[in-house]
Design a protein around this nucleic acid. Structure first.
Length: 281
DNA sequence: AAACATACTCGAATTCGCTG
DNA sequence: CAGCGAATTCGAGTATGTTT
């Protein structure tokens, strides 16, 4: 029976630099587990992230077991009792790190990690690369390396947020074929005239059903969604270009610049010109 | 003078309540 | 649930005032 092999293991030294960066990597490593490897702990500082390179493992949080397969990552709230182990038939190989930070616990709550600690990525290979780069840094210790580690953990957190955000949005938007088609059409032609009949046709539903769909998927009415979308584009154009406000109004689907100004102020709290001034340096 | 903002108004958009 | 008409809200245009 193959035994657990510790391929890499780090105890970074922080010396007098603790607290200079958002994230502190407390420990990290790379292990290839044997079938009997098992970790069971009550309470250690920080948060632990286990990325499964190959094989399969099981993590237990709040008494519930969750399978972790290749390309997935488990986020363990290690301040409370937790455990992890490989599955016997195909023991996992993992990259792991333990991180401390002021805000991770709150983020954990927002991302409902306790209910589902396992994250699936659109591009797991990127996450693996990120972790390997992070481990490479830990060979040495310097202020610059601390900064680089901070950046890597930050990128990892971004990947975790994206993974969960996409999953939260998907069911509502993607399950309805017509709504998906409608969104695509609006993204391509948001500067054209849209009314409720046209939206309903593009979505292939009745008017009443259109409102229900948007309410469920976005929590707003179709035109409110369209307005917010257009306003976001307008803000971008105001900052990125020197075009007159009236041209931008037309470009984002408001043929009447006057009305556009009014809407913009209601939306952004500033008139278009004031907004542009406040955003230019 | 041109570009932009605001007040006011009317009709379209949205919601509501009901029915099949 | 989905559709329909009535009730209500709110969007969009016009006219007019304000800033650059």
């Amino acid at each position: 029976m193959p035994q657990t092999r510790i391929l890499r293991s780090y105890f970074p030294v922080h010396e007098g630099w603790l607290g200079l960066f958002a994230y502190q990597v407390l420990r990290a490593g790379h292990i290839q587990t044997g079938p009997d490897h098992r970790i069971e702990r009550q309470d250690v500082p920080g948060h632990e992230f286990l990325f499964c390179i190959r094989g399969e493992g099981v993590v237990t949080v709040r008494g519930r077991a969750h399978a972790v397969r290749a390309g997935e990552m488990a986020w363990l709230p290690v301040r409370e009792p937790h455990a992890h182990r490989p599955v016997r038939e195909d023991p996992w190989e993992i990259l792991w790190l333990r991180v401390d930070s002021a805000n991770l616990s709150r983020l954990m709550a927002v991302l409902t990690v306790h209910d589902d600690p396992v994250f699936h990525f659109a591009h797991p290979e990127d996450v693996e690369t990120l972790l390997i780069e992070l481990l490479d840094h830990l060979d040495r210790s310097s202020l610059a390396i601390q900064a680089a580690c901070d950046r890597h953990v930050s990128a990892l957190v971004e990947a975790l947020v994206e993974a969960r955000e996409n999953r939260l949005l998907e069911p509502e938007v993607a399950t309805h074929k017509g709504l998906g088609d409608l969104m695509a059409q609006i993204h391509a032609h948001y500067n054209e005239h849209w009314d409720i009949d046209k939206l309903a046709n593009a979505c292939r539903v009745s008017k009443a059903q259109l409102f229900r769909l948007f309410q469920t998927a976005f929590g707003k009415t179709p035109l409110a969604w369209l307005r917010d979308y257009r306003m976001a584009q307008a803000k971008r154009l105001l900052v990125e270009t020197d075009d007159p406000v009236s041209s931008i109004a037309i470009a984002v689907g408001y043929p009447d610049p006057l009305y556009f100004s009014r809407e913009f102020k209601k939306h952004a709290g500033l008139s278009p010109r004031a907004f542009r001034a406040s955003e230019s340096w």
